[in-house]
Each structure stands twice: as C-alpha cells, then as structure tokens.
Amino acid sequence: MKNFSRRSFLAVSVAVAAAALPVASSASPAKVPVIWDGQKMWDSFLKDGTGFSSPDGEGKPLALVAFDTQCPDCMTLQKRIKPLEKYIHVIYYPISYLNIHSEPQATTILTSLDPYKVFEQQHEHFKDPDFRGIRYDISKLPESVRSKVWTNTKIHRRVGCRAVPYGVFKTPDGKYLPFDENLTTAELAKLFGIKNYKEE
C-alpha cells in the first residue's frame, strides 16, 4: 500500500469533501452553533421573554425571532419575513447585542402603544445619515422594561445563539427549525410550511 504524507492526505480529504458538497443555492440556511438548543430557545422566550407580535397573528403558526435594533441583517430578515406575516404569527424579541443604542431603542419599542409600528419606524430611519434608527430619551425609559430587554439578551446567549437575527420555528411534528437573514422569502415560506405562497 502506498504511503501518504500528512499533507497529501489532507489535500485528498479536502478534495473529497468539496466534491461531496451540494451546489450552492440562492441562500444558505441559518448557521447553527453546535450548542444551540432549539427547544430551549422556544420554551425560554415564550416563558420568560418579552416581545411583540406581528399584526393579526392569532391562530396562525408561530415563529420567534431574536433581533437587535442596530443590526442591518435583522432589517433584512424582517423585510423578507414581512410578506409571510399574513400566514404566520411572528413574535419579535429585542435584545442588546451590538452597541449602546440597542437596549434603549429596544425599550422604546417595547414601551410604545404600538410596538410593531415603532419597529417599522426603526427600519425606516435605520439609514438616516446622522443617527441609526429611532431617537430615545434614556431618562424616560422605565428600568423594569430595560431589565426585560436584558432578560431577552440572556436567553439568547444561554440557548446557544451566537448571532442576530436568529429565529426558531416549531413544526407540527415537534421539530425546532432555525432561520436567519440568509433565507429568501420563498425559502422561509417553505420552512414555515406555507404551501400557497407565491412571490409577488
């Protein structure tokens, strides 16, 4: 049997692995950390998290999304998931992950009379030249709600999430599927089991 050097063996291994990879699609699925626990994320956010719902979600299949107001990829996910909100109920959980504006903007959203509307205003102002997103007065933000944002943040970390946005969807047969901004709207529709979705 011919002897292979360690370098030759590694080269052959990489080549074989590359040949076995599927052809890249238009988007990649969520990158799942090995420590991510989908059921724990689902149960923890529903039990101890504080979020807000997409409009008219009652009675529809449920999806949970952890996001940061300062995250451009979070804006991308919401843009892609929005056409599907007529079919599913999304609960958005703001966390403080990226910078000093994340928590007060999250608190501002949660304390508003219409959190989803303010969430959309955050998107509208995200590319403002002088400030990213909605303005806030930190002296008027209740500590009790600020603490809830930090509880969301702890849940995000403890269930093994290592990025934002990060979502989880529970299928009818009890599987917990991760998703993020890398999925297109059509791919998200497939993940959510929406059979009658047609891209507009």
Rank of each mutant, 00 (worst) to 15 (best):
I91E: 13
K31R: 13
M1D: 12
V12Y: 09
Q122D: 06
L113V: 09
T153A: 10
Y97P: 00
A27V: 03
S54Q: 09
Y116L: 09
W42V: 05
A20D: 06
T111C: 11
T151I: 15
K170A: 10
R132C: 05
V149L: 09
K86Q: 15
L64P: 08
I95T: 07
K31F: 14
L84K: 02
Y136K: 05
L84P: 08
R80V: 07
Y197S: 10
Y166P: 00
F131Y: 14
P129Q: 11
G38A: 09
V159H: 07
L191T: 11
G51N: 10
I109M: 14
K86V: 12
L183D: 07
N152P: 08
I95C: 12
A106S: 15
Y166V: 05
P29W: 01
M1K: 09
P142L: 02
P104C: 10
K79Q: 14
D128I: 00
T107W: 11
P172F: 06
K86S: 15
P29N: 00
S26A: 15
D68Q: 09
K31Y: 14
S112R: 06
C74D: 01
P129L: 12
E120P: 02
G49E: 03
K117L: 12
I155C: 10
F52A: 11
I88S: 09
A189N: 10
P142A: 01
K47G: 08
A17H: 06
P129G: 06
T76P: 03
V164M: 11
M75L: 13
S26R: 08
L10V: 12
Q121G: 03
F119R: 01
L77A: 03
P33Q: 09
L177H: 03
D56N: 13
S28A: 15
D73G: 01
V118N: 04
L183A: 02
F67L: 14
R135E: 14
P129H: 07
G59M: 11
K40H: 12
P22V: 00
L183T: 00
P115T: 01
L183M: 15
V118R: 02
P115E: 08
G59Q: 11
Q121P: 03
F9A: 15
A189Y: 12
D37V: 01
R7N: 14
A24M: 13
N182T: 07
A63R: 06
D43Q: 12
I35L: 12
S139P: 04
D73W: 04
W42S: 10
P83W: 05
Y92Q: 08
P83Q: 10
D130K: 10
I81P: 06
I100H: 12
S8A: 14
R158C: 08
C161K: 01
W150P: 00
P178S: 02
D137A: 02
H123M: 11
V34P: 02
N152W: 04
G133I: 03
V118P: 05
